[in-house]
């Protein structure tokens, strides 16, 4: 036993073990709450894990870098999980192949809408030019969106924040919005949330329906590609 509880805390807070454990346990609790509410949109496990852990870090005065030493093992799995999307895509390939034309139309319409709407709204409320440019790629996965912002010469940190906020908001809004629009086609619902809200939207889609998840994954991947190509073009027209 350590005689001094503070020295035990100092020891624990320096190892990756503590923050990895906290990440897994808080998520497990948030996910259990989400299950108990039958996957209610507002019980989104990402949203609740994030603010609870954020609060714990704030109360213990832990810098993010130290938290990330532990949490990086979870963060690392984002890449392999993207590769893993190949499996449900393969298992549902006939459904996906039969919807190539609707997917292409929805991809082009959605991708342009995502960029143009945020740029116009940001200019409308008078945000400075560099912030407007940082927000343009907010609908695609963080790695790609930050790359786009770097190539535009604006702050990628602002982009990362906008990306995560868009992901969580889209994942919460999609179910009530689609229900109110009476869209029952899970292919369309999944494709829309994957396009608008990348991986966090895709995670939500997989919670609701496997086919929705597959279409979300396809939309996320295609939109990452299309957005990185058209953002430079669109902002040169829209932003003076």
């Amino acid at each position: 036993m350590t005689a001094n509880p503070f020295s035990l805390w100092v020891y624990l807070s320096q190892t990756p073990l503590l923050w990895l454990t906290v990440t897994l346990l808080v998520y497990a609790a948030a996910d259990a709450a989400s299950l108990a509410t039958h996957r209610h949109p507002l019980a989104n496990p990402v949203l609740h894990s994030v603010w609870i852990i954020g609060l714990i870090l704030l109360l213990t005065g832990t810098p993010y870098a130290r938290y990330f030493d532990g949490a990086q093992f979870v963060h690392f799995l984002l890449g392999p999980a993207t590769v893993a999307l190949a499996v449900p895509l393969y298992e549902n390939r006939k459904t996906v192949l039969s919807a190539v034309v609707p997917m292409v139309v929805a991809l082009v319409a959605g991708s342009i809408t995502a960029i143009v709407s945020i740029v116009l709204l940001a200019e409308l409320i008078g945000l400075p030019r560099d912030v407007v440019l940082s927000l343009a790629s907010k609908s695609v996965t963080a790695g790609v969106a930050m790359g786009v912002s770097q190539s535009l010469g604006v702050n990628p940190s602002v982009t990362a924040i906008a990306v995560v906020l868009t992901g969580i908001m889209g994942a919460i809004i999609v179910t009530p919005l689609m229900n109110s629009m009476r869209i029952t086609d899970y292919r369309a619902r999944g494709f829309a949330v994957g396009l608008a809200s990348h991986g966090i939207g895709t995670a939500r889609a997989f919670q609701v329906d496997t086919v929705a998840g597959v279409f979300a994954g396809v939309a996320m991947s295609l939109n990452a590609l299309l957005t990185s190509l058209i953002v430079p073009l669109l902002v040169s027209v829209l932003v003076r």
């Binding site: 990440t23 897994l24 808080v26 998520y27 996910d31 989104n44 496990p45 990402v46 894990s49 994030v50 603010w51 852990i53 954020g54 870090l57 993010y64 938290y67 990330f68 949490a71 990086q72 979870v74 963060h75 799995l77 984002l78 392999p80 999980a81 590769v83 893993a84 999307l85 190949a86 499996v87 449900p88 963080a142 702050n155 940190s157 602002v158 990362a160 924040i161 906008a162 995560v164 906020l165 992901g167 969580i168 991986g199 966090i200 895709t202 995670a203 939500r204 997989f206 919670q207 998840g213």
Partner: peptide, 27 residues
Amino acid sequence: AANGMLAHLSLLFVPAGVGVVQQLDLV
């Protein structure tokens, strides 16, 4: 292995999300 990983896709966004909460003042 793949379906097991995808069942908890939400978990993988938590570390990045926590970073965002800490930098919210930027926006």
